[in-house]
């Protein structure tokens, strides 16, 4: 399922910041949190929980932890608490986070990083 943003398109406000989300380009306005930029771009889930249920940013004030995404390789980042910057690489998470540098373990790993 994909749905356009659940928010109205915003009027132009000058320069945009350019990032990627799962490889696809996504823009933000200066001052946006990552959660705002993602919500402005799409109405889809920004994460699937460890039980596989779809979630996206919820409280917008850092208390619910539903907005967790991977930012420049750092998993479980609270998207509502981080300001968008040009060139950021964002990825939706599926299930529990990975461990980037622990690759040598005999893994039944579902790590995505």
């Amino acid at each position: 399922m994909t749905i356009d943003s659940r928010f109205l398109p915003r009027p132009d406000a000058g320069a945009l910041l350019h990032m990627t989300l799962d490889g696809a380009p996504i823009t933000a306005r200066a001052g946006d949190t990552l959660a705002a930029a993602i919500l402005a771009a799409s109405g889809d889930a920004s994460r699937h929980s460890t039980m596989g249920t779809p979630r996206t940013a919820y409280c917008m004030m850092g208390v619910c932890f539903d907005c967790l995404i991977e930012v420049d390789g750092q998993p479980n980042t609270q998207a509502c608490m981080v300001a968008a910057r040009d060139g950021m690489v964002l990825a939706r998470q599926n299930g529990a986070r990975g461990l980037r540098k622990l690759s040598s373990t005999p893994a039944q790993s579902n790590a995505d990083g």
Binding site: T50, G95, S104, A107, N110, A111
Partner: peptide
């Protein structure tokens, strides 16, 4: 800690 996908060996 937060949950990890990969298993410690």
């Amino acid at each position: 800690t937060e949950k990890l996908g990969p298993r410690l060996g």
